[in-house]
């Protein structure tokens, strides 16, 4: 056709290597930040920074327990939860083709919390340090609740997968399921106090067994998600076009939503309801990188992990030696981010 100069035509994607290089630099920066935040996670606590540093350099028996069995699983666990939420958000935004979709706003997190509450009521166990088998059971219960929530949300939005009505029904389902959780807990005042912290989202209970379950869930979600990423690329071209390319849309959606459900359930079962990480992480990635979905699904968990580690540090730092629920911190920061996002969209529209 007219005018593709042969000089340009020689090589295929002329700037593809630049994009890959940018992605590599981005990953390096993200990992560096994560390393720094992890160090912070070891140092920040009820003791002074100087004392923590001394512990780190010259550990004794007691400090070893605080550092390696309390602070380290907490900071690793916070990363994994953030990563799961970042991944869940990135997938939800792509499947629903809605930039505001995320586990919290879709009601999935509330469904998972209801599942955990029912499991606790049924088993009489208390939230806190559980054996890994019990952690797994909690995750399963959370997954059932999250699955129920997503079915309800999609049914209420009448399967229309790309409109504002989806978000609206997600919020309705979220409120409804939260209300049921609250009613159940009102009947059990002894559970109410511990569950309050849980429902606000807290990284305080993360143990090594929780980290093991979270890590397994993360691998089980991230690997298939990255393998399915090309389908998500195709979906950005529209449903008809994706189908004409040889994609089975129902199977793709079902598989991806199952990943969102498992990711949300694992996160909620361990730390409760933590909102907005799933919204903010993919947005930050898209603002700093030109991404296809393979890159997005690799970068969003890394970004989400770092975000939740940072929020966890803040929650321990702001009111030292007391700590805030991490969910309250993410809700504040995420709420501000969402407001900015809406404001900017309204201005651009």
């Amino acid at each position: 056709m007219s005018g593709a100069s042969p000089a340009v035509a020689d090589r295929l994607p002329p700037r593809a290597r630049d994009a890959t290089a940018r992605f590599a630099v981005w990953l390096a920066i993200c990992l560096l930040v994560t390393a720094l935040l992890s160090l912070g996670g070891l140092l920040v606590g009820t003791t002074s920074l100087g004392r923590s540093l001394h512990w780190l350099l010259a550990p004794d028996a007691q400090s070893a327990i605080v550092l390696w069995d309390i602070r380290l699983p907490r900071t690793v666990g916070a990363w994994l939860v953030g990563a799961l939420l970042g991944l869940g958000g990135a997938i939800a935004q792509a499947v629903f083709r809605n930039p505001l979709a995320e586990p919290y706003l879709l009601g999935t997190a509330s469904g998972a919390a209801l599942g955990v509450t029912l499991a606790l009521l049924g088993s009489g166990a208390s939230i806190g340090a559980l054996a890994w088998a019990a952690e797994l059971g909690m995750t399963g219960a959370a997954a059932l609740g999250a699955g129920l929530a997503i079915v309800l949300t999609v049914a209420l939005a009448r399967g229309v997968l790309q409109t504002a009505s989806l978000l609206l029904s997600g919020i309705v389902v979220g409120f409804l399921l939260s209300a049921i959780t609250s009613l159940l807990l009102l009947a059990k005042p002894d559970l109410w106090r511990t569950m309050q912290v849980f429902l606000l989202g807290s990284t305080g209970y993360l143990s090594w067994s929780a980290v093991a379950v979270l890590g397994a869930a993360f691998l089980a979600c991230a690997i298939p998600a990255v393998l399915l990423s090309r389908g998500l690329d195709a979906l950005t071209l529209g449903e008809d076009t994706a189908q004409s390319l040889g994609l089975s849309l129902p199977a793709l959606r079902l598989g991806l939503l199952a990943i969102v459900v498992v990711a949300t359930a694992a996160a909620v079962a361990e730390v409760g309801v933590v909102g907005f990480v799933g919204l903010v992480a993919p947005h930050l990635v898209r603002e700093t990188l030109t991404v296809n979905h393979r890159h997005l699904l690799i970068a969003s968990p890394l970004c989400g992990g770092a975000l939740l580690q940072a929020a966890d540090l803040l929650s321990r730092w702001i009111m030292r030696p007391a700590e805030l629920p991490v969910g309250a911190v993410t809700a504040c920061l995420g709420g501000v981010y969402l407001a900015m996002l809406l404001w900017r969209r309204a201005r651009n529209a």
Binding site: L12, P13, A16, A19, R230, D233, A234, T236, L237, G238, T241, L245, G246, L247, R286, T290, V291, N292
Partner: peptide, 17 residues
């Protein structure tokens, strides 16, 4: 066709799906 954030080469590559 829907607007996409993919690059042109990536969109054309999807034709090989």
């Amino acid at each position: 066709p829907a607007p996409s954030d993919l690059t042109a080469a990536e969109v054309v590559g999807l034709g090989r799906f």
